[in-house]
């Protein structure tokens, strides 16, 4: 059974159709890397999965919950689907620990003490135990992004969506974030990542999805797809990146 099941999803912004019937199955433990040109609909697809965007037709099931369904509790859905953003979006008025603790205390009604333990555990996981009392403005981009990952993990999501989470980082900070993601993958976390890091997609991904003009254009095992892309569009895309 798929953990996330995307079936023939169509999404338009006004007259512009961005997703033109996207289907994708993600099993537990999968690490799905989504690649594709700018504007091909990668972010939009990701945002549909946790209900940040609505879509016009098709269906998405995440952990058994129908996204956008009449009887679906969105809050329940979002507790199971975490998301990490390109721009970190940390809460600037809270410390690293405060950022991580907020949703567990407010949403899950976890006690302060327990939430602090969760925060300690998650910050340790991303290698930032020593930064628990630092404010986002006192952290480097890479550290901020790792706190953002810890913040998502604190809700113990079934699947984590990552939208180009290293694209806003200085090159020397990219690896510290990728290592954290790789570790998560090793621990069996289900991940759906939009990424421009082709080597990472090949080495860590279990599935590769190439999106083109609002559709899944080609898909398969990353190593095989990269070694021998079938469609000319992917050949060109991979070639263009070098």
């Amino acid at each position: 059974m798929s953990l996330v099941s995307i079936r023939e999803v169509r999404k338009s912004f006004g007259p512009l159709e961005v997703l033109k019937g996207v289907s994708l199955e993600v099993a537990k433990g999968d690490v799905v890397a989504i690649i594709g040109r700018s504007g091909s609909g990668k972010s939009t697809l990701l945002r549909c999965i946790n209900g940040l965007e609505t879509f016009q037709s098709g269906a998405i099931l995440a952990d058994g919950l129908e996204v956008g369904g009449m009887h679906t509790d969105v809050r329940e859905l979002r507790r199971h689907v975490g998301m990490v953003f390109q721009q970190f979006n940390l809460f600037p008025h809270l410390t690293a620990a405060g950022n991580v603790m907020l949703a567990p205390t407010v949403v899950n009604k976890t006690s302060k003490k327990e939430a602090a333990e969760i925060a300690a555990e998650m910050l340790a996981k991303v290698g930032l135990s020593d930064k628990r009392d630092a404010y986002p403005s006192q952290l480097s981009g890479g550290q901020q992004q790792r706190v953002a990952i810890a913040r998502s993990l604190a809700m113990r999501p079934k699947v984590l969506l990552c939208d180009e989470i290293t694209s806003a980082l200085d090159p020397e900070l990219v690896n510290e974030v990728l290592r954290v993601v790789e570790q998560l993958a090793k621990e069996g976390m289900t991940l759906i990542l939009v990424t421009h890091e082709m080597r990472f997609a090949r080495d860590v991904g279990t599935n590769l999805v190439f999106m083109h003009h609002g559709k899944v254009h080609e898909t398969g095992v990353p190593k095989e797809v990269f070694a021998a892309p079938k469609t000319p569009e992917l050949q060109q895309f991979v070639g263009g990146i070098g």
Partner: peptide, 23 residues
Amino acid sequence: IPKGQWEASTSLAMTYFEQMRYV
């Protein structure tokens, strides 16, 4: 307040009131 603050807190399953109150 940047849109990203809303999106991040929405993704953390917070309700509108919780977002306003805490974020």
